[in-house]
């Protein structure tokens, strides 16, 4: 009896669930389970080019690229760029990154003044940037396709594959609010539909080139091809260190129990200022 009762309940629940199905938007895609990497998968990493060490951007060349290979802004976007450029030149820079949201792609590669590093694991290349915990890109190299409609995020969704010693990466699904930045004070939100193509490869034993093709149809007249250079250093002083963007918004203080705490610091537009006179 108890068994029959259970069966009846299950049947009713089943009917109820079935009747709910048409109301659901769509069936989620199958959740693929990745196989555990094998010893051969780990060994295969040894055949990839050596990108170990810390990579520091060529900042001088970043600036040079902007003047020698300018961004093909749409005519209607150009006045915005001119406005922010003038604001910076006149000493009123807009702080694109002051809110401590990530640079996002492709600005992380284009304008960073901080080092980054690569981690190779089976099926994935991970890029970690210094100075913010949020400078993190996962580039899947396990053969998966880009999803049709990835949830937008700051660094987009990236898949890559190796062509010889070159990592070829495609990135889509970047939030339209992410800036296409040419400096920390001048940039325009990417808008919808941006795609970033990268070919990352060594051009000298300790020089890495990111060759980028940036499609941003909302703001560019054509895809922008540009290169960013990074130099390797293996000194331990170049090891990536932790960086928490908002830490600078606080100073050390003490609560009423004597615990060490952080309290907001005095600042204006991202500049630390002396405490106001009492």
């Amino acid at each position: 009896m108890r068994a029959l009762h259970g069966t009846t309940t299950a049947a009713i629940l089943g009917l109820a669930f079935t009747s709910l199905v048409p109301a659901m938007a769509q069936t989620p895609p199958p959740d693929v389970i990745d196989p555990a990497p094998t010893a051969a998968d780990w060994a295969a990493l040894g055949k990839l080019p050596d990108w170990s060490g810390t990579w520091f951007p060529d900042i001088t060349d970043q600036d040079k690229q902007i003047t020698t290979n300018p961004v093909p802004w749409k005519p209607e976007v150009q006045p915005q760029v001119a406005f922010w450029d003038k604001e910076e030149k006149e000493g009123r820079p807009r702080g694109l990154l002051l809110n401590c949201l990530p640079h996002g792609m492709p600005s992380l590669i284009l304008i960073t003044h901080n080092a980054n590093e690569f981690l190779f694991t089976p099926g994935r290349v991970t890029l970690l940037g210094e100075s913010d915990g949020n400078r993190l890109r996962r580039i899947y190299t396990d053969g998966r396709k880009l999803p049709d409609d990835p949830d937008p995020n700051f660094h987009g969704t990236s898949v890559g594959h190796w062509e010889g010693d070159t990592l070829v990466v495609e990135t889509r699904g970047i939030l339209p609010q992410v800036f296409l930045a040419i400096s920390e004070a001048v940039g325009v939100p990417l808008g919808e539909g941006a795609v970033v193509h990268e070919r990352i490869h060594l051009i000298a034993p300790d020089t890495l080139a990111h060759d980028l093709v940036i499609e941003a149809p909302a703001i560019l007249t054509r895809p922008w091809e540009t290169r960013r250079i990074y130099y390797r250093n293996r000194k331990r002083s170049y090891d990536i260190v932790e960086g928490v963007c908002r830490q600078g918004d606080f100073e050390e203080g003490t609560d009423k129990w004597g615990n060490k705490i952080y309290v907001p610091t005095h600042q204006q537009d991202g500049n630390i200022l002396p405490p106001p006179a009492k």
Binding site: E88, P93, S131, S183, A185, G270
Partner: peptide
């Protein structure tokens, strides 16, 4: 000029508010 610009450039925000 380019070198000196890179020399004073800092992470995260422009230093153009300084003269």
């Amino acid at each position: 000029v380019a070198l000196s610009a890179a020399g004073v450039a800092q992470a995260h925000h422009s230093f153009a508010m300084f003269d």
